[in-house]
């Protein structure tokens, strides 16, 4: 299979979903530009360019889903969900419960997330912990082109609502967008291995709530998602040079969370390091610790997260976002503090 970029994989999956199901529509700001291929192919009636009205957009997607469509609504960056959170938190997420299962909201909210390119605190957040905390919302964060395509297909076909987050540093399309024109001088903290990969033809759906073990290892478990997975893989290579065998678990879904995979890997390695680009408190990294504790897994635990509002200046931004250096430091501390079993 030829290698495909992350954004090409998303576009292919979307085109496949739109081809086989006429109920699938795309709406969002600038989608005639951002999804030019789909716009040309499926027309303005199925790729609906919308004003910057995130509340109206998310709610419109919800109403359309209730009335028989399968909308994919785009809100550019996940940060912009702030003004529209009501429609997700209070309406889409509650619909199925409030109607006792008689009504579902099969919609996908697609947004770019993540930082590392100098856009400061209102454009670079992750927010998956905030969203995944709401019962009724599913949240997925793919790290590979195959998963991006597969999770999008599953999200579109599922009962919804699903928030589908694409890390900007994995997506060539977003990198082009961010680096275009006057931003040519900007350096991006893109993983060395990039985010190209093989994607099935047609792409294979990936079920929500199933993690993927990207690397075997018995000394330490690196648990992450999105671009963090690539950083963990880089760190695992470096650790291997030191004689430490680190497993890398790609959660892929924040909600539902693959509890079984976390528990098994925690038991097997006895040391868990969560690499979560979202904020520290009340989120995914703490949830992983809670899952381990609830299941009686006596593993050492540490986390590398975003602790503060993401700053603009490169040096400060570097210090705030998880990177390989911070992962290595945390891994070393964990190995020193919990010397227990090795290998």
């Amino acid at each position: 299979m030829p290698e495909t970029s992350f954004s090409e994989a998303v576009d292919r999956a979307l085109a496949l979903a739109m081809t086989r199901d006429p109920r699938v529509v795309v709406l969002g700001e600038d989608v005639r530009l951002q999804r030019r291929g789909a716009f040309v192919r499926f027309g303005a009636s199925r790729v609906l360019d919308a004003p910057i009205s995130e509340s109206a957009l998310l709610g419109t997607a919800l109403g359309a889903a209730m009335a028989g469509l399968r909308p994919v609504v785009e809100i550019y960056f996940v940060d912009f969900i702030g003004v529209a959170l009501d429609q997700l938190l209070n309406h889409a997420a509650k619909l199925e419960a409030f109607t006792g299962g008689r009504w579902q909201a099969p919609l996908v909210v697609r947004a770019a997330c993540g930082g590392g390119y100098g856009d400061a605190g209102q454009h670079q957040q992750s927010l998956w912990g905030l969203l995944a905390g709401v019962p009724g919302l599913s949240v997925v964060v793919p790290s590979t082109p195959a998963d991006a395509a597969g999770l999008l297909l599953a999200a579109i076909d599922g009962p919804g609502p699903v928030v589908f987050l694409e890390h900007k540093l994995l997506s060539q399309q977003w990198l082009d967008y961010l680096g275009g024109a006057s931003r040519e001088g900007v350096q991006f903290d893109v993983p060395a291995a990039g985010a190209r990969g093989e994607v099935g033809e047609p792409p294979v759906p990936v079920p929500l709530g199933v993690a993927a073990l990207r690397r075997q290892g018995g000394d330490l478990a690196l648990v992450s998602l999105g671009v963090g997975v690539h950083r963990c893989l880089e760190a695992a290579e470096l650790l291997e040079d030191e004689g430490v065998w680190a497993a890398v678990l790609d959660l892929r879904s924040v909600a539902p969370l693959d509890v079984q995979a976390i528990v098994e890997l925690g038991r097997r390695t006895g040391r868990v390091l969560v690499v979560d680009e979202d904020y520290t408190r009340g989120g995914l990294s703490g949830e992983v610790a809670a899952v381990l504790a609830e299941h009686g897994v006596r593993s050492a635990y540490a986390r590398v997260t975003t602790e503060e509002t993401i700053p603009y200046a490169r040096a400060l931004e570097d210090a705030v976002l998880p990177n390989v250096e911070r992962i290595m430091a945390a891994a070393h501390a964990l190995l020193v503090n919990a010397p227990g079993k090795r290998g």
Binding site: A56, L58, T60, G63, A64, A67, L69, P71, N90, H91
Partner: peptide, 19 residues
């Protein structure tokens, strides 16, 4: 939620027209 039903009503109308 005050005003919360308005956006979904736009979506229902959109779906009806598309259908």
């Amino acid at each position: 939620i005050v005003g919360g039903g308005m956006p979904p009503s736009v979506g229902m109308a959109l779906a009806d027209r598309m259908n």
